[in-house]
Design a protein around this nucleic acid. Sequence first.
DNA 1: GATTGCAAGAAAGTCAGACAATCGGCTTGA
DNA 2: TCAAGCCGATTGTCTGACTTTCTTGCAATC
Lengths: 223, 223
Amino acid sequence: MPPDLNLRISPRTVQRETVDKLRLAIFSGLFQPGSRLIESQLCTQLGISRPSLREALRSLEAERLIEIVPNRGPSIPALSWEVATAIYEVRELLEVEAAGRCALRISPEQLRELEKSLSAFEEAASSNDSLAQVMTAADFYSIILANCGNPILEEVHRGLVARISFFRGRSMSLDGRAQSSLAEMREIFESIAAGDEKAARKASKQHVLKAKAAAKISMDSGL
Amino acid sequence: MPPDLNLRISPRTVQRETVDKLRLAIFSGLFQPGSRLIESQLCTQLGISRPSLREALRSLEAERLIEIVPNRGPSIPALSWEVATAIYEVRELLEVEAAGRCALRISPEQLRELEKSLSAFEEAASSNDSLAQVMTAADFYSIILANCGNPILEEVHRGLVARISFFRGRSMSLDGRAQSSLAEMREIFESIAAGDEKAARKASKQHVLKAKAAAKISMDSGL
DNA sequence: GATTGCAAGAAAGTCAGACAATCGGCTTGA
DNA sequence: TCAAGCCGATTGTCTGACTTTCTTGCAATC
């Protein structure tokens, strides 16, 4: 009997990674809004079978990152300004609440963490890399949301922000938006550091409102 | 040419219905929290193939109605009180906002609709059918959320309420809870009908807080 | 008697291939 | 020119198979 070499090189793709890959591809704007995703194409591109792919697509559908129309298949949803507005409004609710709570309970250690992420954004803001800007800004919020004491607040917020990632990248490249964003975020940070709940809420609200306004401008001009 | 008999009896189960069936089964408490769901069993019970079932399970996983642990498969998550609290808190945020907005913009027609659902709950409350109570109460909120002018608020709310449906059924059967719930809901209704935003917010907040307290009591005693 | 190790079975993860149902566009005919 | 119908592309779903991983029960050892 020949020896069983068991030369398993690729341990049969892990599906969980597939979802992440696809999500990342969507975030980085690889697909145009409204464009269809062809299952067979994605299968070959990702190197997985159709059943596995379809599982991943169902997850993304539930996250509202893609749409699946019966008998037409998956596509990237074209986000209307109406829906985007609604998302910004709920985001405001959540972020304001989180910032307020954070001001009352954040630990010195986490506060340093927050400061560090603010510095990271500062650096990104002075560059022209709008993807880095969006990513570091997302880090900043994540730390606040993760330390507000309510895991659901964080979870819902993440889901919503994911859906407007497309807008955020574009509005961040507006002239001067990164810099004013930095100022607003610094204000949030200062308020939290001071333990001033009211101020943290106010600063947070201002920030989201301005982000929304910037998104609107970029949409009106860009599209 | 032979006549087209077209004897298609079962048009090959539609997958969308599968998700709904499973979701309903979970809502009605058919599975114990923590219990595992065996794919092959569900397949035969639902009369579908494993790939289709797995797609449905992925959707439910993304909605957090089930958990899928790698190599262990799907199971009903045991909701900790900590997480339940977090959900109630976010629910409060959303419902208060929705009720406030609703008070300012609801149409007379929708208001009648709301009144009707309140009556439906009143009837259910005087019975002992706690499932009917939960369902009619859910209708009441749905109308408010659907008329607040922000579709995302509604969407997120629905997702959260689904996850605590288990609690709600049990706390509703607490002695007197249905009746006091009715009083609170009537207060919300009156405030909205009067177009009084502040009052609507306050009443809504009270209602969620009491619902949370009732859930806590039923959990401490029951489990 | 308790604990560890092993083996057999159960269940999940993944794949390949197949076929019907449906949609959209294109051709053809009036 | 427009409508009807056909055809290709793509999705919806199934069957059946295989490997990997987990669980459980039994046995052997300390």
